[in-house]
């Protein structure tokens, strides 16, 4: 148990400073580590826990609490979540003053320009890998494509799409 908490802490402390464009971009890395390296959950369970987190309100980073819980209970949830936010929060708190200065603004502009496309590419990749993790049938692929197009082109609230997904699943389609 202590071993698992240490592994969670070290992994998420590192991911914290590597996360660009939201915790979601690092989901493939979490899958690699939690499913393939540690074997703490199956690929199917990973996809289900991710779905559970998406269906709940709150910041996306809480998906990490769910994975931590699966690995080591409530302590795991706390350790993983705190490890994921602690380094980046400290950096943000101390770097924000610099980024507000004129010299900092130049840096910020350059970093945003350089990282935005990479973040978008990794986010799209995370979506595709998650869709693949659940070993999808034709209807699942349809749900994924439909949700992608609707959230891209319309302002439909995501909860409606999540509800349709749940219903299609229960109906035995997905």
């Amino acid at each position: 148990m202590m071993d698992r908490l240490w592994i969670l802490a070290v992994d998420f402390l590192m991911l914290s400073l590597l996360t660009v464009g939201g915790a979601t971009t690092m989901l493939p890395e979490m899958h690699r580590n939690l499913v393939e390296v540690q074997g703490w959950m199956s690929s199917e369970e990973f996809a289900q826990l991710f779905a559970l987190a998406q269906a709940a309100p709150g910041p996306n980073v809480l998906v990490i609490s769910v994975f931590g819980w699966k690995a080591a209970g409530v302590a795991g949830a706390l350790v993983a979540t705190l490890a994921m936010i602690l380094p980046s929060c400290l950096l943000t708190y101390y770097a924000d003053g610099f980024l507000r200065s004129p010299a900092g603004a130049v840096w910020r502009e350059a970093i945003d320009d350089a990282l935005a496309p990479v973040a978008a590419g990794l986010l799209a990749a995370a979506g595709v890998l998650l869709a693949r993790a659940a070993d999808p049938g034709a209807v699942s692929i349809g749900l994924t494509v439909g949700a992608a197009l609707l959230s891209w082109r319309t302002r439909l609230h995501p909860l409606w799409m999540i509800a349709v997904g749940a219903i299609a699943g229960v109906a035995g389609l997905a």
Partner: peptide, 18 residues
Amino acid sequence: AALRGVAAVAAGLIIGTA
């Protein structure tokens, strides 16, 4: 089964955000 459907939609929402 419901979570399978939700996971498929949630993956799509991420692609949509990108």
